[in-house]
Design a protein around this nucleic acid. Structure first.
Lengths: 331, 331
DNA sequence: GCTCAGTTTGAGATCGATTGCTGAGATCGG
DNA sequence: CCGATCTCAGCAATCGATCTCAAACTGAGC
């Protein structure tokens, strides 16, 4: 498999390389016989165009970076999975960029994506997105954020309705008979995390029950601390809402280590709807985010923006997913 | 931030573009004063070289594809995470490629990596790797496989010692007093999966206990089926080894749904050592694979091979990780 | 002051594509 | 049968870098 350039194909097909180029990228500009002949020859040689050379010349590529803080977090993994597919379907190639929450790395990826002529990028942040930083890179108009942003003006976003999600969770738990419902935050400072917490605080007191935040840290140990806190309480809540599934796992695990059983002793809910939750012990009741939709819509928004400059903010509906980690309160 | 080409920097620094090029990529070939001046100017302009143009001209890039079947599987996610880091440290950029087990997609990624002048690629397979297919792409000598391969000759590999891992698991369980130890496979047809199973079969009978395979399927439901099988047995085993952590999760979950408690009623072990296992309920006892090492070594092997053509096969040592899903057998 | 070796920089071709421009045939009405 | 219009393919410049070759400069030695 020797070096296969456009010139090789051109020679083999007996035409000029510009014709080969057109045969591929502007079919209507070349007589269909010629086109088919070229395509056949190319096929026979096993030729595909160099995305590098193409991007260099066109000053636009099909590389779409997805910037996530931690691929080990199943939420981002699921997002990455569905987005890979979505990107593929539209002829893009998704580049996974993992920042480990390091803003410097994030900037690095931004300059890289610029250098690669990426048509746009998707950011799933671990902290509130710094819109100014985006602007500084001259593509505030080329990024879609999977979180809410402060300064709504310029950056398209897709999120799920946090308030609605918390409402769903609260309703589910109340319908089961719970009146004392705790909350553990445990995810870092995104707007989404903030919104969920705020919604809990507000909706919880509306329902006449006093909010009860077991932990509001943002590290992986939040679950363990929440459990410890729970054990030390005189009147612990009969149900707990975790800000996301991972935290819920940690809470249940830590509780279990101290002999507290879920849902017999206390009900626990998550928020995310990870596939993993179905194989947890017990299978986790949760609020499902439409992750696949988020991925698709993020790309659509980006394309739309590239086309006509429109900046949309899509808010998706979450959905209650009842599995086995919740039940009526123990009396 | 206008278009920043090497020529712009050259003009700004008052030198020819070849000098700028050298200042960056062959420091010793340019007088250090000039070099520093150029670097300063470039810095001031915020210039970075185009990886595209560079790759095109050099016919080699720093893009390293990591081909995995499913990023949603935490094992691959952890691998991706550590490899991203390892790649970064060595000046490579990892491109995550997800195949969903589709061989056509795998081939697609191969041609893509060729087109991008990737110096090498890493493959974490979902099925036995087809070495012939690799050869067909003229870079049997540019891929490292994270699994054993049939035809050892040509492709470097890194794996962990399956037999040793199973030994560790068996010893742990036996030291706890278990004599009847079941196995559930549940991962697809890699050599690794095969090796673990074979090791179990062999080592299990050596210990005078008869092997007891609860399920050998390869789909996500293997865990549930194994649990069902367990429940139907007259003399179920007192301990179960799962071929990997994910399957272990599923087994414990399914068992739990039927009121069987781990480790009180039955001990369950995993194989992988996922971070997630520490937050399972109960925290999972498992055989840890040195995932970070695997990533680093994979890249080292690739580099070494690129350098001097050597094809190594590294076999790493697994390690017992005792958490809370195992205990003495119930009497 | 001159030669010669060694450093350092500049010129220009090149990697694999795209694209505006130009010219060669084909088509068509009169 | 002729010129106008339209298709279609070739030419050559270009994207942003690298690299070989040669020119210019440096300094040592005589």
């Amino acid at each position: 498999m020797a070096d296969l350039s456009i010139d090789v194909v051109a020679k083999a097909a007996g035409v000029h390389r510009s014709t080969v180029s057109r045969a591929f990228s502007r079919p209507e500009a070349v007589k269909s016989e010629t086109r088919e002949h070229i395509l056949r020859v190319a096929e026979g040689l096993g030729y595909t165009m160099s995305p590098l050379a193409q991007a260099l010349r066109r000053k636009t590529s099909t590389f779409v970076p997805l910037i996530v803080p931690d691929i080990t977090n199943p939420f981002f993994a699921e997002l990455a999975k569905t987005m890979t597919q979505a990107a593929d379907d539209r002829g893009y190639q998704l580049l996974l960029c993992v920042t480990n929450g390091d803003p410097a790395k994030t900037e690095g990826y931004f300059t890289a994506m610029q250098a690669m002529y990426a048509p746009f990028g998707i950011v799933a942040p671990s902290t509130k997105v710094d819109t100014d930083a985006l602007k500084r890179f001259d593509f505030g108009h080329k990024v879609v954020v999977i979180d809410r942003v402060e300064d709504d003006a310029s950056v398209p976003t897709v999120t799920v309705d946090s308030r609605r999600g918390i409402t769903l969770a609260l309703e589910h738990l109340r319908s089961l008979g719970h009146t004392s419902i705790g909350y553990v935050s445990g995810i870092s400072g995104t707007h989404t995390a903030q919104d969920r917490m705020d919604a809990y605080l507000e909706l919880s007191s509306e329902g006449n029950s006093t909010p009860l935040v077991l932990d509001s840290g943002s590290d992986p140990d939040a679950g363990a601390r929440a459990a410890k806190h729970y054990l030390e309480m005189e009147n612990p809540p009969t149900a707990i809402i975790a800000a996301n599934d991972m935290v819920a796992f940690a809470v249940v695990s830590a509780l279990g280590q101290s002999g507290i059983r879920v849902p017999e002793d206390v009900s626990v809910m998550g928020f995310d709807g990870l596939a993993l939750g179905a194989r947890f012990n017990p299978p986790l009741t949760t609020v499902r985010q439409p992750i696949a939709d988020m991925g698709n819509i993020a790309i659509e928004l980006a394309e739309k923006q590239n086309l006509n400059g429109s900046v949309d903010h899509v808010v998706l509906e979450p959905e209650l997913l009842v599995r086995a980690s919740t039940s009526g309160p123990r009396k």
